[in-house]
Design a binder for these strands. Sequence first.
DNA 1: GTTATTATTAGTAATAATTACTAATAAGGA
DNA 2: TCCTTATTAGTAATTATTACTAATAATAAC
Lengths: 141, 141
Amino acid sequence: MINIESKIEVLKQKCAEANMRLTPQRIEVLKMIASTDTHPDAETVYESVKEVMPFISLDTVYRTLASLEDLGLIFKVDNELPKSRYDADLSPHCHFICLKCGAVYDIHMDNHIEPPKESFKYGEVLQTNLQVKGICHKCRG
Amino acid sequence: MINIESKIEVLKQKCAEANMRLTPQRIEVLKMIASTDTHPDAETVYESVKEVMPFISLDTVYRTLASLEDLGLIFKVDNELPKSRYDADLSPHCHFICLKCGAVYDIHMDNHIEPPKESFKYGEVLQTNLQVKGICHKCRG
DNA sequence: GTTATTATTAGTAATAATTACTAATAAGGA
DNA sequence: TCCTTATTAGTAATTATTACTAATAATAAC
């Protein structure tokens, strides 16, 4: 479980460093993603944040997600589904993705994955992600 | 390098099994993807196939890609880029993806990746993919 | 605290990628 | 060779995301 208060604190610092403003929209969007393990898409974030901030626009949600990603506070889950899914958990873990319903489950790991040696042949390595895909128990019925 | 003739042979068999027709469009789309290691997107496949088949439609390319994926002859490369990229190489390998230009390079491996044990908690595992992301040499200049 | 600056936002329009629809076509079995 | 029906071309529609613009509000300077 992510400590939301400390996440907000990091947002505060990173915004100051990047000359970006600490707006309530940024705080709410980050809070929403950090408080769930469902890896929501932009639309879901929008619907959820609207409950406490009825006039927020979908555009703002998309822009805010991009900003938070730039600041390194959240990242997109790699998938081949039409909608991008977001994750605020920066601890070493990977994902089980259901090919039928699109559900994303966390698989916790002791360490981040080491990139294969051949990787460095192609450029500077910034992240290494592992996805496990299959059919979740719910979809199997 | 993929043996294209044997790929077409597999397409033939799989189509017969699945009560699907062996159309020239399917052959050309598969040929195109199997003959490159650039992991092209739908638009690129379309432009390329149009050279030998000028009246093919983009819709057919999309439908054909989906069919070939269903038959297990090609698969989508996991990424967070706006366009889906396709791969016909079924041997054990993963991808280096450049975050700047979107280039996808193959990283060959001796064996397919073992899914972490926790994976099975969530459902039936069908595939395990590893992506290495960074900035490629060309983009570093 | 007040004011000024300008990053950010709401609302909406536009774009990009993909999917759906329909009449015409052609693959493959009889 | 004919028939059945899966598939296609051409185009329209949908979906996810991004861009635009005037209005707003976060922060710094006074």
